[in-house]
Amino acid sequence: MLARSCLRSTRIVGAVRTVAVNTSKRAASTASAAEASPFRLNMAGGAATAVAIGSIGWYYHLYGSDLHAMTPVEEGLHPTAYPWVHTKWTKTFDHQALRRGFQVYQEVCSSCHSLSRIPYRSLVGVTHTVDEAKAMAEENEYDSEPNDEGEIEKRPGKLSDYLPSPYKNDEAARAANNGALPPDLSLIVKARHGGIDYIFNLLTGYPEEPPAGAVVMEGLNFNPYFPGTGIAMARVLYNELVEYDDETPATTSQMAKDVTEFLNWAAEPEMDQRKKMGLKVLAISSVLFALSVWVKRYKWSAIKTRKITYNPPQAGRHGRGSH
């Protein structure tokens, strides 16, 4: 700031000096300013414009660009946006894909990731029938109510039980995974920037080997979409890893797409209701809006169409009450 004001003051001094020189010159030669050649005036104007544009450009170069506290590596690669059908306003999830996605979760993801907010009952009518959901629940054991001696025994699962977690608690999960906590997947679609696109890109984005120059720490894997690029989870989805019961070819991208859509359902099971209600609200309120426009025009029509006439007094006739 001090330097800048100093600059300005010298400039002012210089301007004053040139003005003084000019006036003295003019007084000496008695030549008027109007006789300055157009070429020199154009040159001066052009130079002033160039200086102005140049200083704006220099200022923008210094202060105009965004500041990023993180490097692109720390941000992670932005996920590619895919044309998901179920994100459209009028579309629900493909429930066949949800069923496949649940199969992928159970056979692959659930060995490390919990899905602790989803009970078996919420799968009924979405991906499985009652009998299937009951059978799946009964494969697990849960703590029962204390019996007469106060002992807690194990009982087979019921529909109201939540999906079992792979680890007893977060500390056990960290200890088993080299210090990295596999996050709970119930709300992961809502919890990550980029949502389903991010998850799909993450699952399918593992390169064969890290690019030259990338630093991958011991125990981590390289994934450009993960912020920091070092992710504890290795690539898990390979072609033909699971066998779908509807005979869809289980490619890596198919499994990633199915499980991503399933996780989207897990995070937003109310999506159908939300979209339906939103469309109904839009329908009703557009009718009401049209009605209100019509009522306004109806009420105002008398005012809008009235005519105000003015009869000027006729010239040449004096006195009052001329009409």
């Binding site: 009028t90 579309k91 629900t92 493909d94 429930h95 066949q96 979405v126 991906t127």
Partner: peptide
Amino acid sequence: SLNKDRQW
């Protein structure tokens, strides 16, 4: 009708 063959 918009979600034919997509629902449970």
